[in-house]
């Protein structure tokens, strides 16, 4: 009988989880408010919360339920608003008008991709959690054995502890501090002949970083101390021999200085030019700070002096 007692609640909870999914679906339809008001009396409330937490854990964690829902809408709005905000700096640049829509489209595609990925991950996690939950609950109930048979009300402290235990189990990264990984495709660097190097996915990387190709180009050339240009196939041709890891190194430095926020290290930033200075505006924490201007500095004479003299004269 005890086994049945243990297994029954999990079954019920699984059903409740389904209601949880429905709630998520209903979130779009704004019916979530009603269902959420019904649920909190049950123990299942705690469990229903968790899938939502997993959806939202990146941004708002530890807020109360109703707030979460509002935050959820805000998030969606934000995400939909992001491309627009990215579009704003675009018209200022002297790019030909034909290219701009292409850029914007790509931005949109990027966003949708990332969204899909997130959702897929979440679904996987949820599926995995369904399996986990049965075990977890048994464990929890073993610890708090007095919860199983009795109808008594649970104290706030008990429930709070339970929620935090579950959250820590599900998100180990949260305990060790937030770590958002910034995944980028490696640069494709190919030697052309003996003296030139091609950086094939240069424009692609610019798009993933949301930076103007010109800005990245300036930085790369200043750091490497060479000359180069973007050719017809949207690849960068640099003079000199460079290996992929060397370019990676320089890119990493660029990202550290000009892409990630200096305060919260989020890559969700916009680079604006304001009175001859570049400012990095963070979309996550709202901080705004100036970044170093790109200077190539002193360049020694490496070519043949006679050739230079012939050119200038």
């Amino acid at each position: 009988m005890d086994d049945d007692m243990i297994f029954d609640p999990t079954l019920k909870k699984k059903k409740k989880k389904k209601t949880g999914f429905d709630m998520e679906a209903a979130l779009a339809g704004e019916q979530g408010e009603n269902t959420s008001k019904e649920v909190p009396a049950d123990l299942g409330d705690v469990d229903v919360d968790i899938p939502e937490d997993d959806n939202l854990d990146l941004d708002n964690f530890g807020k109360k339920k109703k707030k979460k829902k509002k935050a959820f809408f805000n998030l969606e709005e934000l995400e939909s608003a992001l491309p627009e905000s990215k579009e704003e700096p675009a018209p200022e640049e002297p790019e030909p008008a034909e290219e701009e829509p292409v850029d914007d489209l790509d931005l949109d595609i990027d966003f949708s991709k990332s969204k899909k990925k997130k959702k897929k991950k979440n679904i996987d996690e949820l599926v995995a959690e369904d399996e986990y939950k049965g075990e977890d609950k048994e464990n929890v109930e073993d610890v708090h054995g007095d919860w199983v048979g009795s109808d008594r009300d649970y104290t706030y402290d008990e429930l709070l502890e339970r929620v935090f235990d579950i959250m820590r189990e599900k998100n180990p990264s949260m305990v060790s501090g937030k770590k958002q990984k910034f995944i980028m495709r490696p640069p494709q660097v190919v030697r052309i002949g003996t003296k030139k190097t091609s950086f094939a996915n240069f424009t692609e990387i610019c798009k993933t970083l949301h930076r103007q190709p010109k800005h990245l180009l300036d930085f790369l050339l200043a750091e490497l101390g060479t000359s180069g240009s973007v050719d017809g196939n949207a690849q960068l041709i640099i003079k000199g021999r460079f290996q992929q890891k060397q370019i990676e190194n320089v890119l990493r430095r660029y990202i550290k200085e000009y892409v990630t926020c200096h305060t919260c290290r989020s890559p969700d930033t916009i680079l604006q030019k304001d009175t001859r200075l570049f400012f990095l505006q963070c979309e996550t924490c709202g901080s705004r700070c100036s970044v170093a201007s790109i200077k190539s500095g002193f360049q020694a004479v490496t070519g043949k002096r006679a050739a230079i003299r012939a050119k200038t004269a």
Partner: peptide, 13 residues
């Protein structure tokens, strides 16, 4: 800074 010269030669400034 480092600058590449001809071949594998370099220059440090």
């Amino acid at each position: 800074r480092i600058q590449q010269r001809n071949g594998r030669k370099t220059l440090t400034t």
